[in-house]
Simulated scan of single mutants.
Amino acid sequence: MEYFIYTLNHTYTDETHTATKFLGFFNSLEDLEEIKQKAVLLSGFRDYPDCFVTDCYILDKIHWKDAFRM
């Protein structure tokens, strides 16, 4: 059986820089969406409401299989 974990980040770029805020790990999309709906009301996040990034990862699995290349 596969288990999943979801992450929620907020990444935006303005005229001077790019910033990422990590909001957390969640075991369901419903929990993640609940936090996202609260975060979008907060200062900063509400200025960039379309900059939330959700990722899904399978637990106990290597997600990077290649060597680091420059």
Rank of each mutant, 00 (worst) to 15 (best):
H63A: 01
D66Q: 14
Y57D: 00
L41C: 02
L41P: 07
Y6V: 02
E34T: 13
T7G: 04
F26Y: 15
Y3G: 07
N9F: 08
E2S: 15
F52Y: 08
V40E: 03
F45H: 12
L59Q: 13
F25D: 04
L59Y: 06
N27R: 01
G44P: 02
H17P: 06
Y3A: 07
L29G: 07
I35Q: 00
L42S: 15
T20M: 09
R69A: 10
G24V: 02
T16F: 14
L32N: 05
Q37T: 02
G44I: 13
K61T: 10
L29D: 01
N27I: 06
Y6N: 00
M70W: 06
L8Q: 00
L42D: 15
D60Q: 12
L59W: 06
P49V: 08
Y6R: 01
A67F: 07
K21R: 15
A39C: 11
F25V: 07
S43W: 08
L8E: 05
N27T: 08
S28W: 04
S28Y: 02
T54E: 12
D60S: 14
T20S: 09
I58T: 13
I5D: 00
Y3C: 01
T20E: 11
E33G: 01
T54Y: 02
D60Y: 13
D31R: 02
K21P: 05
T13E: 13
A19P: 00
K36H: 04
K21Q: 13
